[in-house]
Design a protein around this nucleic acid. Structure first.
Lengths: 114, 114
DNA sequence: CTCCTTGCTACGATTTATGTAGCAAGAAGA
DNA sequence: TCTTCTTGCTACATAAATCGTAGCAAGGAG
């Protein structure tokens, strides 16, 4: 598993559209990158290897997937376990917990849109 | 205020990386577009007019802002009130409520990253 | 050895975002 | 009325992100 360096938005640093360094701004930047939310979502269950994750994401291109994984690993949200695959870290799982209510909310939203 | 047509991801339709039509997939697609989370965030308080919102987002380019606003309005998350500006709809505010705990979480995350 | 599977990397094509300029419409002031 | 501002955008050229496909290197299985 590769360990290339990207440099994902970090608390304390300037990120897209914000110089304050506030952690939430870094988080919004990170989560707003294409595929990030989806990847976290697909890792909610058991670890998935690269190709499985790629398939779970409906055929995301391997180049982007790899970039996103590098960012998420640098951000300590995802880790790669040899012989198991990619999985959420403890921190990552906490974040996902915050996001799971979105499933239920999205059903209501869907009704509002009809 | 413009009312151009984009066509944002919708529950029931196929969206980026998913054909199932599940609402949460449409939501993840929408929220994963650049600036969307930030825009919702900046609208947490009082209504902001176009230029104010642009400034709040740290100088996002007007073209993208306008595109995002169109998507969010079609998605019934944001509305434009004449003489007041852009604001979250009831639905949009509900969504934001789900997201506000992220501020607190992000502080913990920041510590983990140090 | 040979044949798979897996985790990527390469790279050209396409889509999105950026940044600056500026216009049209309305409000405000003179 | 005649400027002069402000505001909500649109235009457009450049740059950056993403896509999609091909395929390679390493490891395991047969």
């Amino acid at each position: 598993m590769s360990d290339r360096k990207t440099n994902p938005p970090r608390p304390g640093a300037r990120v897209r559209g914000s110089q304050t360094g506030r952690p939430v701004m870094a988080l919004l930047d990170l989560l707003g990158r294409r595929w990030v939310l989806r990847i976290l979502w697909e890792l909610r269950g058991e670890p998935l290897n690269f190709r499985a994750l790629q398939a779970a994401c409906g055929g995301i291109s391997p180049s982007v997937l790899n970039t996103r994984l590098a960012e998420l690993r640098e951000s300590l949200l995802v880790e790669a376990r040899t012989d198991e695959g990619y999985t959420l870290t403890k921190t990552g799982r906490e974040l996902l917990t915050q996001l799971t209510p979105l499933t239920v909310w999205s059903e209501k939203w869907a009704k509002a849109l009809k």
